[in-house]
Design a protein around this nucleic acid. Structure first.
Lengths: 331, 331
DNA sequence: ATAGATAATCTAATCGATTAAGATTATCAA
DNA sequence: TTGATAATCTTAATCGATTAGATTATCTAT
């Protein structure tokens, strides 16, 4: 493999000049430039990225930590990240949090070892808080950590859940169950808060049996719906904190021979493609996932280039999308 | 940031010794080792990966080229890749082919520039053939290129489609439509061949109107099903080359007020989570996606470590999964 | 005591690209 | 023709980790 030296020799210039042609950062005489370019072509020269990175002491890789490869919501965020990354010439490295269960979370090692220029965390828990502190070059997407100064972008989880719950209340439902994506998950906790707030404002007592813990997955939706349906007085509406779980809920209800929404209403959260693929189509909260990804990558770029980020905590609105899975309750 | 030199100075040894402690590749006196480790700790030393990579002239990043971030099938493959990557300490870099429309395909640049150690292509078309030739360090997963010596792993697309078609024939269907994932897509073409073969063996004439071109997406499934349903004699069964498209087909049929499978049978391909989330649940071909990913990464590891790959062309069997979306036709 | 073997460690070069500092050349005005 | 200025190019150092080859210390056998 040819390197700068070879090219320099062939073009009868110094390596410095070759490098200047390469980077375009300094002036080079047009004639010289052509000689160098010709030499590169003849030698089929490809600059070695490792050398460049070492000299410049930075990688252009961005690590994206995905909580769960099985949850397709994150891929929509990833698409937004990718578009922005393409624009600014970053490469995306991904890690699945789920594969690391139990092991220590050493994502930040990548940062300290300069293997990546930054880390975008899709969702975080309190666990990561300590590790994150002291690291610039971290952006949190789809969630937020209280009390630390990390740029983040996410939907207003509380408000969105509040909206959905009010919608269900307006449909005359009083026995509403909530399936969380995990009690220790920040985004899900906020959705639960919004849910509870709506009930409370409506003057309804919370039934602890109606609060269930899933893990955002389809399977956990099935499982928790099964549990709910076995109660003496099952709910008339189930609000799941993700579309994956909501799809599982629908599946569970249908397997029991009941109908959605005629017998039980089901609501989701995220508005991923799945939401409109299932039957009945899901009434859900639309998260602008793509946009969230773009924001995250945009803030990362600001961090890396040392610019001041205007608006470090960005919150976008979730939109209530009414489809077919919820119906007025006629007790 | 501390580097080997600083550590060496502090531990009163040479950088060579520090490095030997770091890599563990050579003998170091236990006492010296402890001194070095202590120095590292005191300085909070983190080895710089860029230096290491340059010296060793290799990156441990593997580029995975995903045809379409929107198709969740690939994420199941990705999970398999990730597990194996974790095992062998590779990092995964991903690229979305869809974002590169029109631009020249310069994935191989990453290889030449040593930015990645290898490339796993999820699906390829004839277009990439020329670029691939001459590159070792490439593995193709979920597809295969004829006439080139590239390691590949995929299901037997033809046989699997043949199986499914025979199943539909056995259910007494005679007017069967096929929705391709793209006529220029190798995997999809082979599925079409299997489909046609089954019809032919059964002595059925192929109706060109029943062969449609989608792009593996949910939306294209809706679109092509709409077209099929508008025919004078619509098919009694629709076989889509992906679950995403099959889900779209079901949606389209239901929107027209018809029922699946009572009015029309629908079959898919892939057996992703979506297949059992939709109603009715999809009868489909199960691809061992996870296993395919593992194989791909395994072969990549062999390539990188210079070992001879036993069985360069690996083919796994697709399994017919019978669920609810197909039913016997009573003309 | 000494040569020879072995183990532990060090010195200095190396990977390939970039760049600061300095050298050289070209250009122009006086 | 000289001096000043700008344009262009070169030399050599640099980024941080690794390693071939040299050196030193330690031990064994004679």
């Amino acid at each position: 493999m040819a390197n700068v030296k070879d090219v320099a020799k062939r073009a009868e210039v110094s390596t410095a000049t070759v490098s200047r042609v390469l980077t375009g950062r300094n002036k080079v005489n047009e004639e010289t430039k052509q000689k160098v370019l010709a030499a590169m072509k003849e030698l089929n020269y490809q600059p070695n990225y490792l050398g460049k990175q070492l000299r410049e002491l930075r990688s252009n890789n961005i690590l994206v930590v995905v909580p769960d490869f099985g949850n397709t919501f994150f891929y929509e965020v990833l698409q937004g990240i990718e578009i922005q990354a393409l624009e600014h010439h970053y490469e995306i490295l991904i890690k699945n949090m789920k594969n690391k269960e139990g092991e220590n979370l050493d994502y930040f090692k990548y940062l300290h070892q300069k293997q990546v220029a930054g880390i975008i965390m899709l969702t975080v828990g309190e666990k990561e808080k300590l590790e994150i502190i002291g690291n610039d070059r971290v952006v949190i997407a789809t969630s937020h950590l209280k009390g630390v100064d990390i740029p983040s972008i996410h939907v207003d989880n509380e408000k969105s859940a509040y909206k959905m719950t009010n919608y269900l209340l307006a449909l005359n439902h009083r026995k509403i169950a909530f399936i969380s994506g995990g009690f220790d998950t920040i985004s899900s906790s906020n959705r639960l808060i919004g849910f509870q707030k709506a009930l409370k404002e409506y003057g309804l007592e919370m039934n602890p049996q109606y609060i269930r813990e899933g893990d955002y997955s389809f399977e956990s939706g099935i499982r928790e719906a099964n549990n709910l349906l076995e109660l003496d007085t099952p709910p008339t509406a189930i609000f799941a904190a993700s579309d994956h779980m909501a799809a599982g809920v629908i599946k569970s209800i249908q397997r029991k021979g009941l109908r959605v929404p005629d017998d039980i209403s089901v609501a989701g959260f995220d508005d991923i493609e799945l939401a409109s693929a299932v039957t009945p189509e899901l009434t859900t909260i639309s998260q602008p996932a793509f946009q969230i990804g773009e924001h995250a990558m945009d803030m990362m770029h600001q961090l890396i280039t040392g610019k001041k980020i205007q608006n470090k905590r960005r919150i976008v609105e979730g939109k209530l999308i009414i489809r077919e899975s919820c119906k007025i309750y006629k007790g």
